[in-house]
Design a protein around this nucleic acid. Structure first.
Lengths: 132, 132
DNA sequence: GTAGAGGTTCCAGTCGACTGGAAGGTCAAC
DNA sequence: GTTGACCTTCCAGTCGACTGGAACCTCTAC
């Protein structure tokens, strides 16, 4: 299939797919006699993989590393486990921060609606967040 | 105090402080006779506010909006409450996504360590994440 | 044959958040 | 007086993830 169809089905713009190919994230596909890229069905899965990896916070660089192992059909090595551990650690912190933030913002929104004359209350909350 | 000291005490580089001034995030300070910037103590609190707001995910543009209201000592108006609501909503989603991600990664890490010969397990998990 | 959609490469730009570097001034300690 | 740390402005660059646009080709429907 051509690049436009691949993009439609995998959820990426052609420009983005070409960009990914340029930075070596995905392989160059075969070409039709007219020079158009000709993708296999498997390219959809690969791009979906990239999208999923992005959605869990991996950078394109990290995804490329992971794909390198996937493409070689090797089991995760210490390197990939290291990537996972780093993310798990960071995730815990981010979740705690976000939950705290959410609670604060909900409380603030409630207070602001109950006491509309309360002054500078938003700034007060942000400063509490900052002092944790 | 001069910009270097402010940066030390507030946790920002002088370059960054000048950048914030340039984009209108923080006000221009007074100047000494030699042209050096001369900051009041309150500038530390303002920059800490910026840092705290960044840490809960606000963009500089959003922080600037909030500061505009703070500086006028007005109570949060509908606009600021709108910013809060947007963030609360987005936060809930992000927290759920991060928690799901964290669970998946923890499970993956455990499985990978118990069954070190398991092949391409990482890719499998990412694809599960993507299919949620 | 024509028009328009879709494709190609190449090069540069956008966005947001900084950061580097050039060119030069100021100041305090030695 | 000299040196080195710190300051100034200005202009452009970096990073990561794209995206726009120019110039041109290909193909299908009318």
């Amino acid at each position: 299939m051509r690049i436009g169809e691949l993009g439609e089905r995998a959820g990426f713009r052609p420009k983005t797919i070409r960009y990914y190919e340029q930075i070596g994230l995905v392989p160059e596909p075969a070409r039709l006699p007219n020079g158009y890229r000709d993708y296999e069905e498997s390219a959809i899965g690969l791009l979906r993989f990239v999208g999923a990896a992005q959605s869990i916070g991996l950078t394109l660089g990290e995804i490329r590393e992971v794909l390198a192992f996937r493409n070689r059909a090797e089991q995760p090595c210490e390197h990939v486990l290291g990537v996972i551990d780093r993310h798990v650690e960071g995730l815990g912190e981010r979740i705690r921060a976000l939950e705290s933030m959410r609670r604060d913002l909900l409380r603030l929104a409630r207070r602001s609606r109950l006491v509309p004359r309360r002054r500078a209350a938003y700034c007060h909350i942000i400063q509490e967040v900052g002092s944790h």
